[in-house]
Amino acid sequence: MTYEVPRTADEKDLDYRQDGRSQWPMWEVFVRQKRGLSHVHAGSLHAPDADTALQMARDVYTRRVEGISIWVVRSDQVVASDPDEADAFFEAAAKPYRQATYYRIPDEVGQM
């Protein structure tokens, strides 16, 4: 496949350190595409500080005016829910009576 280099007989399987080390911290980039829309996660990048992160985010994620506003947040500042607890945490999904389609309205009533 295009960018994948076929294995040669002498290729060694690498063990990756998994320490995630990088000279500069990582930042998450959020871009607002246009007025009236929310900032949406676009990706991440490494930068030494917030000002540089903003400039880099502009170059990496908005080369074609994909945005009119950017937020950057240090990745280690993001607090995430536990994926292993997702079922218990999001049990609201099991309450169908919170959905509009749960309620049967006779056709004669029309659009509701």
């Binding site: 990756y16 350190r17 320490d19 995630g20 080390r21 990088s22 000279q23 990582m26 991440s44």
Partner: peptide, 9 residues
């Protein structure tokens, strides 16, 4: 990097 490998590496 989402797979745990560092940029430096």
């Amino acid at each position: 990097e989402t797979l745990g490998v560092g940029r430096d590496e």
